[in-house]
Design a protein around this nucleic acid. Structure first.
Lengths: 209, 209
DNA sequence: CCCCTCCTGTACCGGCGGTACAGTTTTCGG
DNA sequence: CCGAAAACTGTACCGCCGGTACAGGAGGGG
């Protein structure tokens, strides 16, 4: 029935916001049911325990994340056939999306799970690992297309460069949140874009000077 | 008295390892006293509450962090007078130090605090913010010396570039921990080094081809 | 009408953060 | 070597939280 899914989604929404602000250990089920307007029995009807809540939360987060990247980079791909140009455009679009977030990026669940690892079962840790590997494959795929056309100015490992995208995003989120400077994350993505541009684009002429 | 300091340090050691693996919310005082071999009363003799433990933990972590960066970059500075070369050497030394960690980087307390923020008081959040700002100043100072000599190939904001160092470190730690690939962090630092080199070093001749 | 989904209500358990406070051992300066 | 301060231990207690158990009820669809 549909009603159940709706309640489940509401719980996940409340839980996600809470977890990103306080971590899993800092988020109590009691507060979730209070904010959702549900009873404890109702909560445990939907999720067997906290671990299963985490599992659902993480899976939903990762799926949504993938969807966003799909949209951004396929849109960029439609606008230009060149793999480098579309990658650079994708980073630009991503940075714009990030700087449009009113209260800054709320945080990444993958990082939250990473800093809570020991209290989750293997399945969650594997899910998290696979999410990061999916990023590596995603950006790696695009970068491999690029290196086929544009010889990199310096020898680089494509997977490591793909990981750099994830690094800058994860790190940028931490910086942005800690500094309470919402724009820092978007700036970091643009900085990465500059580097990618420099790495693959032929040497630009010194502008009249 | 010295004995007190010693016990205090032992508690902090145990707590730091636990917090980096499970977060603050996931770390119970009971487990800390069990592992330290102390009683609950003993614990509360040293720290008024969990918040004060966090405060001491974070301050100690930041001080140690600063000390490590001081050592690395002053050593690099002694080996060469050129600011760019010493910065690049510093990044190399840092990556070597990171890849020598037997079990990989244990995690960054600044990130842990960042993902737990709402349950700490303002003082801790300010301490954390100041730690990140100190990184920005540290790397910014070095980069400003560089740009005075080496015109960057692309226009960049020095503070944003300084933040990039922190981003890659924080992000690299998350990736390394999540992937359970200890080397990823060191590789990311070297990748950043490549970018800095590309940005400031005059165009290298294409190697015979 | 009955069954299934989607809950509510009640009662209970043990662990944990935290408090209070009295008492004991250890340490070190004088 | 003594005495005072430092560095604990022991005990008892509180309320919140995660989790379990289970009985029951509303509401809609076949």
């Amino acid at each position: 029935m549909r009603k159940g899914e709706e309640t489940r989604t509401r719980i996940l929404d409340v839980a996600e916001a809470a977890v990103l602000q306080k971590g899993f250990g800092g988020t109590s089920i009691e507060e979730l049911i209070a904010e959702t307007g549900i009873t404890k029995s109702g909560f445990f009807y939907h999720f067997r325990d906290k671990n299963e809540l985490a599992k659902a939360l993480l899976n939903r987060y990762i799926e949504n994340d993938e969807r966003i990247y799909d949209e951004i980079f396929s849109r960029a791909r439609e606008l230009t056939g060149d793999p480098l140009q579309s990658f650079l455009l994708g980073l630009k679009l991503l940075s714009e999306l990030l700087s449009d977030l009113p209260n800054g990026h709320p945080g990444c669940l993958v990082a939250t799970v990473c800093y809570y690892e020991r209290l989750f079962d293997r399945e969650i840790q594997e899910t998290n690992r696979n999410a990061v590997l999916a990023w590596r494959r995603r950006f790696g795929r695009m970068l491999r297309e690029i290196v086929e056309i544009y010889p990199p100015r310096e020898p680089v490992d494509v997977d490591q460069l793909a990981d750099m995208v994830s690094s800058v995003l994860e790190g940028g989120i931490v910086l942005s949140k800690t500094l309470k400077e919402p724009n820092t994350l978007a700036e970091q993505v643009l900085m990465l874009r500059t580097f990618v541009k420099m790495l693959f684009l032929p040497v630009a002429e010194m502008p009249r000077a």
